[in-house]
Design a protein around this nucleic acid. Structure first.
Lengths: 133, 133
DNA sequence: GTTCATGCAAATACTTTGCAGACTA
DNA sequence: TAGTCTGCAAAGTATTTGCATGAAC
């Protein structure tokens, strides 16, 4: 948290209560704008949806959050201060789990087979979680 | 084309000129709704954007097209009658190339590490294409 | 006190729905 | 001819912008 606070202040920006709330809500899992909006408004505080959009865009610029696209669903946001990982999405209950994988071999194949200078990749899995099976 | 035509007719649906146009436009590469809309309207014909949405939804139901999410961009549609493949996206020019990969090993790891019954996955790469380097 | 951020209202963009007329088979 | 499909208009949803007030430092 303090690292993030410092990052924001170093940019000459303010560390407001709204930003703190959103950071708090993001601790859980990748969430959509609406989910984040509901999470921060379930408490006594009320925050405008515009503010949620603006803060998320701001966090994205600063690299504090990542935008994750899970197939044909809305975009989700997650904190980026985690180890590189991928997602398992349950198509029944919508639950999302993280998973870490040894993808180096595959990346080497891509580099050999293509002319692209690869900078990043996304790898997501869809199926049915243990609970829903 | 004839396979698709048959598939549509077997469902008791019509093979209209609009559907033909959209199939034609999709031959190229994964495209957004707007791109498809522009492509079909560049010719003499004019087609409503509503129709583009409806036909794409219809094709999605019939399994004729797939919806592809490339990171934080809009959804794209591509013909599904291709071999399973992944995408290389150029962050400079937006060009998209297909690539086929030996991902079986990785899938086995996922099955071993997780409780999920995996049904599908998406794997996309982002970087700079040869031309833009 | 200065500057940046928030809330509200309104604008813009994206997607879906209803219905009458047009087209396919 | 029967039934589906399209175009247009309008509604619904998502996201962005402008501006006055409020908060952070």
């Amino acid at each position: 948290m303090d690292t993030i606070k410092k990052l924001i202040k170093d940019k000459g920006q303010r560390f407001t209560s709204q930003k703190k709330e959103i950071l708090c809500a993001l601790q859980q899992k990748p969430q959509t704008v609406l989910e984040i909006y509901k999470a921060v408004n379930s408490k006594k505080n009320s925050m405008d949806k515009t503010t949620v959009y603006r803060i998320l865009t701001n966090f994205l610029d600063l690299g504090i959050v990542n935008k994750v696209q899970l197939n044909d669903k809305e975009a989700r946001f997650e904190l980026s201060n985690r180890k590189h990982h991928h997602h398992l999405v349950c198509e029944d209950c919508g639950n999302i789990e993280n998973i870490q994988l040894p993808e180096d071999t595959l990346l080497k194949v891509v580099k050999k087979k293509s002319d692209f200078k690869i900078k990043s990749h996304s790898l997501e899995f869809f199926g049915v979680c243990k609970h829903c099976q």
